[in-house]
Design a protein around this nucleic acid. Structure first.
Length: 276
DNA sequence: CTGCATGTTAGGTT
DNA sequence: CAACCTAACATGCA
């Protein structure tokens, strides 16, 4: 259930393990992932070299040497794994990529089947990007851009930060952590937050995401990098999933759980007061 | 059995 | 049009 740091961890692993390798064969296996037409997908990959691997928000883009693109979204439980050629059969594997060098294989595994991957021919790239409607990556957005994006809207700050068309990459965990550090209530209306506070929030966002990437992301259950190694950022979480424990800042109030934007939301009612 | 889950979106209503 | 709400997707776990 990856957010920006987890997706970045996967992308870095992919760069190390499959960049510049030539695809010998791709096998698309049933049962199918949802809502996508993947007919012809496997055939399109055959013989091509993976020439670039990039990320915007939670989206992964694998560039091929014919200028086509493979777009991948892991959604909740999607995973990329490098496995031995002798890998045992797993009913949750949906795509297997074999390489000409035959060193190992790349598989896409997804228990809940929300994940998606789509082949985009070179001439459809621009159109595809327009349709995706991704905002500025959370690690790329400048302080000024962030302040403008937040203050120009009249919505609760948490749903705004979760909106991938505005800032791309944040999910439920990191939004709660960033709001906790910034002492902003998740239901605070965005336009009313001071510029000063937003600059601090932007700074907290960058620091938190970078530190989480250094820790290879957060693993509660299924997340791992391409080598099946879990992340370790979960031991640094201050608010998320800590209902009832003492607030690490005021050390006097308990972390509370409420529901905002239909998501479990953790915050300190003393440090993060709803103003006005 | 119930409720919940690191994501997103179609289809409503206000 | 902007913002908000609900249900839905498929599966596993406490």
């Amino acid at each position: 259930m990856p957010e920006l740091p987890e997706v970045e961890t996967v992308v870095r692993g992919l760069r190390k393990s499959v960049l510049n390798r030539q695809i010998r064969k791709a096998l698309y296996c049933a049962p199918h992932l949802q809502k996508i037409n993947t007919r012809g997908f496997a055939r399109n990959l055959r013989g091509h070299r993976i020439s670039a691997i990039n990320r915007i928000g939670k989206n992964i883009f694998m560039g091929l040497d014919n200028n086509a693109l493979i777009w991948v979204h892991l959604r909740m439980t999607g995973r990329f794994l490098i496995v031995k050629n002798s890998m045992e059969i797993d009913c949750h594997n949906h795509l297997i990529i074999e390489f000409s060098d035959d060193v190992n294989k790349l598989v896409f595994r997804d228990v809940r089947k929300f994940g998606q991957f789509v082949y985009i021919p070179a001439k459809k790239r621009d159109h595809f990007f327009d349709e995706l409607n991704i905002g500025i990556d959370a690690l790329q957005i400048s302080g000024d851009q962030f302040v403008k994006a937040v203050k120009s809207r009249n919505r609760m700050i948490k749903p705004l930060l979760l909106d991938q068309s505005i800032v791309a990459g944040l999910g439920n965990i990191y939004v709660d952590e960033i709001l906790f550090q910034s002492r902003v209530h998740p239901r605070q209306i965005s336009s009313g937050i001071s510029k000063h506070k937003l600059i601090r929030m932007h700074d907290n966002m960058h620091k938190t995401l970078r530190f989480a990437i250094e820790n290879m992301g957060t693993t509660f259950d299924s997340f791992s990098d391409v080598n099946n190694e879990p992340g370790s950022f979960q031991s640094y979480l201050q608010a998320y999933n800590n209902e009832g424990s003492l607030c690490p800042r005021c050390k006097n109030h308990k972390i509370k759980r409420i529901v905002v934007a239909q998501r479990g939301t953790y915050f300190c009612p003393y440090c993060q007061k709803l103003s006005r």
